[in-house]
Design a protein around this nucleic acid. Structure first.
Lengths: 307, 307
DNA sequence: ATATACCATAAGCAATAGCTTATGGTAACA
DNA sequence: TGTTACCATAAGCTATTGCTTATGGTATAT
């Protein structure tokens, strides 16, 4: 059976009005055009759908079934159109994000504002490490990723949208905290608690030390940012972390920033997507949103760090 | 939006396989044919449905919605086909009947057997009086009617299928019951309990008396057949009823048939439909069924009446 | 670097979908 | 009995559909 939506539409009108001529008017067609559509539909169904007794039209039993089908199908089509149109107009839809652990804090802050503007969209947020992020991009399992500078050669498009200052922190009683200016040489004598090998932060710090021909000594490395800060609080070593993750600790004065020569190391946060990826409407809007708003939002919660 | 079933079908395969070439094979088409259908569907939706990242295909968010829609719609179409095919093959369907009150008894008996043969069909049975039956036919609100001879000039097709003997009954103690043969003259001295004016039975009886130049005196008329018989049982008068309605009373010996000259009056039951009415398959079968089986079925429960 | 697998695009062609106008037939109605 | 309202059918026309084959581009794998 090879129906057309046209046949169903015309049949729906005829079945409703039980009158070809007035159906033709409603459809802005000639009366024979209607007759033909019905005839074709009857040929497809291989059974009469409408019967004429005297002057009046009646639906046959099969015709009645077809009428139900026509209405149901056309309603479904309307629903689909509605859904698509909502998706396009961003009133609905799903946004799949993934962010580096370190970016979690301020991305969530931005998401909260964004979600208030588009209340009907739903969001998946995966907070994970760098290699998993790259994997997600690879498998096209998310729309956008927020992370540090991605490696070359993965067919990724990355746009920096926010500075990511790395600072050195220690617990308040650390002797370097009192120093007005700490040289790199002094710093290099310390031991550090820092993110694991392969993380963006770790890479940047190691490069920084290498550039200055200094040795970087790690006391401990961990994949959990909170744990790193906690270790620093406990005096296990100095920590080098993104300023954006320090809000609470600075407020609570459980950690202090050390004013080191050459610091903060300015890295950047990037919005990353697969090259050639056609973003969903909502993803496109979110990307624009963070590109524009990031600076302002961060300022709102940045604390004076005296640098 | 003006989709075609073809587009949906092709899209369904592509969305399922996420591979144009293999979809083309499944559909026995060339690969460009598939590309074009998808392209057209995307034009209709005015948004991409499938995206290619590297070598792999992915559904966009809207594409996923469309996929759900396509599957649902195609499933509905299958259901419709199934329903129609069942209707055609008589495994399903609805039979709308109406019968004269007097015919109720044996029609139900036939229906019971019929329903056993076609267990999945449903039946509406309207038991009502003659004028309502004609109205139902007029409005095409039933497939078939079983009644006495219908009047001319209603554009009806009527076929007699069963004799309908009208007999005179009285309660067992009535003095005429004992008579071997009662003349019409004797009968005419009696008063009768009978169906209302306009009913088939009443018409036939009045015509019968008129033909024999006798006066027909009614004691009481009622539209309910059971009430008529009950009145006769109570001795209110003689009743003239269809033999087919007497099974229980004869068995129970609460009424006796009086052997009157010229009785039974042989009338007929007719299957009636609107002229030109296209019967549904199941109605057609039922009509054939009662034309063939009526005699045999009636014999099964006819009682000897000693005529 | 080359081969391979896959999709997009273009050109061309036959079938038909989808109308239109004109006309004919029939039931209802006055 | 003619008139009216309605549906069916026929003829004819155009735009579109739905393919095909040929070809080109690109990401991945070797």
């Amino acid at each position: 059976m090879n129906l057309t939506f046209r046949q169903l539409k015309v049949f729906e009108v005829v079945a409703r009005r039980l009158n070809y001529t007035s159906a033709a008017k409603e459809l802005h067609l000639s009366q024979p055009a209607v007759s033909m559509q019905i005839k074709q539909l009857e040929e497809q169904a291989n059974t009469p759908l409408i019967e004429k007794l005297g002057k009046k039209l009646y639906l046959t039993e099969v015709g009645n079934e077809m009428y139900n089908y026509a209405r149901s199908t056309m309603q479904q089509l309307l629903d689909l159109e509605e859904t698509i149109s909502q998706m396009k107009s961003l009133h609905k839809g799903h946004l799949k994000l993934a962010v580096a652990s370190t970016a979690n804090h301020f991305v969530i802050r931005m998401l909260a504002r964004f979600a208030r503007v588009y209340p009907k969209i739903s969001i998946s947020l995966d907070v994970t490490n760098r290699s998993t992020l790259l994997e997600l991009l690879e498998k096209n399992e998310c729309d956008l990723v927020v992370m540090g500078r991605p490696p070359e050669g993965h067919n990724l498009t990355a746009r920096p949208f926010l500075e990511n200052p790395l600072v050195v922190v220690a617990h308040p009683e650390h002797y370097l905290v009192r120093e007005k200016k700490v040289s790199l040489k002094e710093l290099a004598r310390e031991e550090f608690v820092i993110r694991e090998q392969g993380s963006g932060t770790r890479g940047a710090v190691e490069r920084f030390f290498k550039e200055h021909n200094l040795k970087f000594r790690t006391k401990m490395d961990m994949s959990n940012n909170r744990a790193i800060k906690h270790a620093a609080e406990e005096g296990l070593g100095l920590a080098i972390v993104s300023l954006h993750t320090l809000e609470i600790e600075l407020r609570a004065k459980t950690l202090n920033i050390i004013n080191v020569e050459g610091f903060p190391i300015y890295r950047h946060w990037y919005v990353v997507q697969r090259e050639g990826k056609r973003l969903s409407p909502i993803a496109k809007v979110f990307k624009d949103y963070i590109m524009q708003e990031a600076e302002g939002l961060i300022k709102d919660f940045n604390l004076p760090i005296g640098l």
